[in-house]
Design a protein around this nucleic acid. Structure first.
Lengths: 126, 126
DNA sequence: TTGACACGAAACCTTTTGGTTTCATATAAT
DNA sequence: ATTATATGAAACCAAAAGGTTTCGTGTCAA
């Protein structure tokens, strides 16, 4: 059970450039919101909302220290991305693609059936 | 130049579950729009728009055959994702994280400075 | 105990997204 | 020629995303 019913999809979470920047920033060290938001051209509240989305995806963890809340990277959910990507690795040596395109040369149904992960097994949004 | 100024961001392109499904479907074989859209609970036009977004991200290639347009997977842009992800691999053996958290034990500025890729080098949206 | 600070929640606004239906055009089939 | 098929473009719409400002609450400092 590597995807423990997270509220937000990892793919969705990393789609936003600001959030990717947040991740790389929090990978370096744990940081409180005000400090983090100092690095962005938007309001603290906006950054806070991005952090919430990342937290909902399990990509960051929060920890309260006195009056401040510190966030840090939680890389684990990225494994889902890694697994997804791993499926496509097989296309990177173009042999398989070359074969397929050869087969596709004629109109018939190709009969090759390999099933990709995701969308059938990784239904987190439900 | 692995990111030849694509119109759409790869991260953005794969954020949508329908589009991920499209990719896995087109990885198997080249297919015309009507056939593809038969597998989805939405209109052909909607699927067509998703295909356009994928094409703008370089993730699919189109090829006209008579009156039909066939689409197929173009995996290359996924390498950007792979590179991005590779950066975070270093966190998966938790040694680095453990070290950081140890350092973070006190309040001082940590001095550890490793720069993540993305957001500085990979500015496609501009 | 009075301020100042750190933060999230709420209400609100604008732009983007994901979808629809309708229409135009190119190609194939009769 | 005429009709049917395959597809994209356009106009439109509702909901989601990404922001903002304002307000309330908890915590630290004087």
């Amino acid at each position: 059970m590597s995807a423990p019913s997270r509220k937000t999809d990892v793919f969705q979470a990393i789609a936003d450039p600001t959030r990717r920047q947040l991740l790389s920033m929090l990978g370096e060290r744990e940081m409180p919101v005000t400090v983090i938001s100092g690095h962005f051209p938007m309001s603290r509240t906006a950054v806070s909302k991005h952090l919430r989305i990342l937290a909902d995806a399990g990509l960051v963890k929060e920890r309260k220290i006195g009056r401040e809340t510190r966030y840090r990277l939680e890389p684990e959910p990225l494994l889902e991305l890694k697994r997804w990507l791993a499926y496509y690795e097989r296309y990177w040596d173009n042999k398989l693609l070359a074969l397929q395109r050869f087969v596709e040369g004629d109109e018939t149904d190709g009969t090759i059936t390999l099933v990709a992960p995701e969308e059938n097994s990784t239904r987190t949004t439900e």
